[in-house]
Write a protein that binds this DNA or RNA. Structure first.
Lengths: 143, 143
DNA sequence: GTTGTGATTGTATAATTGTATTATTGTCGT
DNA sequence: ACGACAATAATACAATTATACAATCACAAC
């Protein structure tokens, strides 16, 4: 259990919503080096109890921080400060990341016994269909 | 120690649960012929240690695969590939694996800030260049 | 051969984690 | 007052983990 709760002060009378107060203060703690990569944050329920608020409010703050890639929330495991790549690495990742991902995808397709043309066709199908994020991955039911 | 662990990559930040990531990837490895009938899988604790997760999560994946009759888990003995899927199932697994890989690639490209068209173009370049290496597992070590 | 002990295997149950959905509350504009 | 909308809370849920357990094996002692 983390003494982070003691470092966060919320003002219930403030016009700033509680969940934004939490977001802002955690951002500041990370910027100040008070929270480092890999540090585990208190659970939503721990922090909520310490701050005497509902844990869903903490969860909302954590969700925002997760979306901005500052933390990583993992159901059943907890929430952690996420490794923020340095700007140079970030740029290098973007520069080379796409090609590497493409190579990796092609290799996977070949391992599965498909031709490069089939790999490209599959990509087109996915682009046309549900373009966005990772799919529910419906694995087949036994029969 | 089975080197299967090295072939399985999990993304703790993915919305896809860890146990389903394991299920899917083992299905793909079987479909691709990387795992054959009678092969012993790593124990739940071995694989869990290698992936830095709890062994119950691996056990849950194995249980699903066991219910699919793809593997056979035996208390006190270990886990083995039970039967090669029927050609129809195998083809279905292959197709599913390809779609999943394409979706994953597209998601990675979008995450890097590229458009779907750029993703497709990058794939074409890699196909033309005859990409030598399979680039394994860039990201996602801890947390 | 049998038995016993310890190590290693998967299993079962419950506790802990974040998530999704819905209801309640509060505030502001009209 | 009223209605709309954001913030918060209540409830149920899903994923992961912790803990204890049962089956199997290896191997030594008898």
């Amino acid at each position: 259990m983390n003494e982070l709760a003691g470092k966060i002060q919320i003002d219930l009378r403030s016009s700033e919503p509680i969940y934004l107060q939490i977001v802002r203060q955690i951002e500041q703690l990370v910027a100040a080096g008070s929270l480092k990569q890999g540090d585990q944050l208190p659970t939503v329920r721990e922090l909520a109890t310490a701050l005497r608020i509902n844990f869903n409010t903490v969860a909302r703050a954590y969700r925002l921080l997760d979306e901005e890639r500052l933390i990583s929330t993992q159901r059943g495991r907890g929430t952690y400060i996420w490794e923020m790549p340095t700007p140079e690495i970030q740029e290098r990742l973007r520069a080379h990341g796409l090609e590497e991902a493409a190579r990796s995808y092609l290799a996977a397709a070949l391992r599965l016994g498909f031709s490069p043309a089939e790999a490209a066709a599959a990509l087109s199908r996915v682009m046309a269909g549900g373009g966005g994020h990772d799919a529910p991955a419906d694995h087949f039911e036994s029969f």
